[in-house]
Design a protein around this nucleic acid. Structure first.
Lengths: 198, 198
DNA sequence: GCTTCCGCTTAACCCGGGTTAAGGGGAACC
DNA sequence: GGTTCCCCTTAACCCGGGTTAAGCGGAAGC
């Protein structure tokens, strides 16, 4: 990929400003990234895939979900602009993953292979440090999600979701939000009615 | 702490065999650990504490839980022999944590301060690598717990728990298991009766 | 323009877990 | 040895979400 900070300002800022890569390092990093378009409903990953790289979500949104034996889908989280998507466990173990990552809108990804990233991280210490910080942050987020799922009921989690993402009802369908809350679409519809009547 | 492999064989094996520290490295590491006894019901950590180190659980078991505003306790996980206990987020951010870690039996811990560990890890690359692997493993475990909580109901999670820890009913009280399953003690009692009648 | 499909809503009934309350048995304490 | 406390059990009633089913409206396809 070639440098063009106008098209992906957040991506540039992340590595240049926040993590302080110098111009040469950033150019080398950028050269290893590939632009990849993912049309709505297409899959970035499905269960059984081995994750071969990391992907930065520059535009669009995705849902990451698992499927239980009965066929029911459970959304672990949604991802939006400026997030990284992928199956963390599969990336590190090189084993087939259990997660599906599907585009909910037309998406633009910046993709880098595991091999290229590993090589670059070995050469650029700041990149290594960034990767570790990112890993920790997603650990915090996952632990907080676990607490949330354990301590809140469906209604509290719904109110929490729309508080954090006020525009989510405009971007994500009722059935996907229901799969995130682990309730049936009918129950979410009923809940919305109940809330609007207050 | 002084070397005495008879008293903590798993600890010794972990660092000597599994992570391949040589004798000198292991002795240096061991010298930074402190033996600490935690009687039943005592706290290793409470919410608001800043975690100042890592602790290896050599003997006993603990519960790690969070408390919601209403006062209800939710057990995130139990820890047994050969596990590490602590608040991951607080350890890395140096901010007050949200978790309680309480001994459910008389416990023996091997404790090392964050400063000592950081210094040793900088000097011993294998230790650094070990810490990263451990961080990833707990990430996998947390993600799997999140999937579990989202996809399984209370009965499935109970059956899953006793499958993984067949002796858990002998070590951990009904009310703590109920707090792990996020149901009331009465409901677990009722569930056990229902299961035994099949 | 008609049909088909899909996403959303509404409703009736069921069931699992919460809530409240009461009681029993064992360990600790006096 | 009796009281107290704690942990567990049981039961009755309530409520939220699941299940099943029906209907509606807009978008896509013919």
């Amino acid at each position: 990929m070639e440098a063009s900070s106008d098209i992906f300002p957040r991506f540039t800022e992340l590595f240049r400003t926040t993590f302080g890569l110098d111009e040469a390092e950033y150019t080398r990093l950028l050269a290893c990234f590939h632009r990849r378009l993912l049309p709505k409903k297409a899959y970035y990953l499905t269960a059984g895939d081995v994750t071969r790289g990391k992907a930065y979500l520059n535009k669009g949104c995705t849902r990451t979900y698992v499927v239980e034996e009965s066929g029911k889908e459970h959304v672990l989280f949604f991802s939006f602009e400026d997030w990284w998507v992928g199956d963390f466990q599969s990336y590190h173990t090189l084993q087939p993953g259990t997660q599906y990552v599907q585009a909910l809108e037309d998406c633009e990804l910046f993709w880098i292979s595991r091999d290229d990233f590993t090589r670059l991280a070995a050469e650029i210490p700041k990149l290594q440090a960034w990767d570790q910080v990112k890993g920790r942050k997603s650990m915090f987020a996952t632990l907080n999600r676990l607490s949330e799922v354990k301590t809140m009921n469906a209604e509290e989690r719904y109110l929490n979701l729309i508080e954090k993402h006020p525009a989510i009802n405009q971007r994500i369908s009722l059935q996907d939000i229901a799969a995130f809350l682990d309730i049936e679409p009918q129950s979410l519809s009923r809940m919305r009615k109940r809330l609007s009547e207050r």
